[in-house]
């Protein structure tokens, strides 16, 4: 099964074409303000004439504008090619890459949410809780003592190849795609919100995990 995976939940635009364990092609560009310009050319370069069986996109959480560019692209590619499109929580990709590099024990995968906030989720063997969005200052101090991957001096971005590796066994096994958790997925709440009800479910519908309400963005008082 050839999977095209893409992620735009962070400053990076990451695209990979994966066939089972083999990465056929991958490309990445880091610029938080140019997802819309770089994504389609990167996809064209990575796909390079291959026939794609499924599209997997990182559904965040992530700052909205760039995230939506990735999700809208994935949806339309799937529509045009007539192949399924599924979402994976982008924080799962960070945790997956950390495990692949040998990080053990509980960890927090996190991404910059701007406005002095972070998107984060806590992982054991799988995602235990999250994703949430919080001000770093508001987090339980105990959490801050744990292993964090993603944010920090050397930010680690979700890699599309990790998304593909998470999705492949689930897609091959015919795992169900989670129901739209409409209220949380589309609106979230605006008080250190959560999409925690997603639980360990890993195949998500291809829509952003917003985690914040839309008017929380417009207003901010």
């Amino acid at each position: 099964m050839i999977i095209l995976a893409l992620d735009t939940a962070s400053a990076a635009t990451s695209v990979a074409l994966v066939d089972g364990d083999v990465i056929l092609n991958s490309a990445r560009h880091v610029d938080a303000r140019r997802h819309a310009e770089v994504l389609a050319p990167l996809i064209a370069e990575v796909v390079a004439g291959h026939l794609v069986d499924a599209v997997v996109c990182g559904v965040g959480p992530g700052p909205y504008t760039g995230l939506r560019v990735g999700v809208a692209s994935a949806q339309s590619l799937g529509l045009a090619w007539g192949v399924p499109v599924v979402g994976i929580c982008s924080l799962d990709a960070i945790a997956h890459a950390a495990r692949a590099e040998g990080v053990t024990g509980e960890l927090i995968a996190a991404l910059d949410a701007r406005r002095k906030e972070v998107y984060w989720a806590r992982y054991g063997a799988q995602r235990l809780v999250g994703p949430f969005v919080n001000r770093i200052d508001d987090l339980d101090p105990e959490l801050l003592t744990m292993q964090w991957v993603g944010v920090g001096d050397e930010p680690r971005y979700p890699e599309a190849s990790s998304l593909a590796r998470i999705a492949l066994p689930l897609l091959s096994a015919g795992a169900p795609v989670a129901d739209r958790i409409t209220d949380l997925a589309t609106h979230g709440t605006d008080d250190g919100a959560t999409a925690n009800q997603l639980g360990q479910q890993q195949l998500l519908p291809p829509f952003p995990l917003y985690v914040r309400r839309p008017d929380a963005v417009a207003g901010a008082k």
């Binding site: 994504l39 990735g70 045009a80």
Partner: peptide, 9 residues
């Protein structure tokens, strides 16, 4: 984004 993806695909 949708239009670029459609044109590409």
């Amino acid at each position: 984004a949708s239009a670029k993806a459609l044109a590409l695909a």
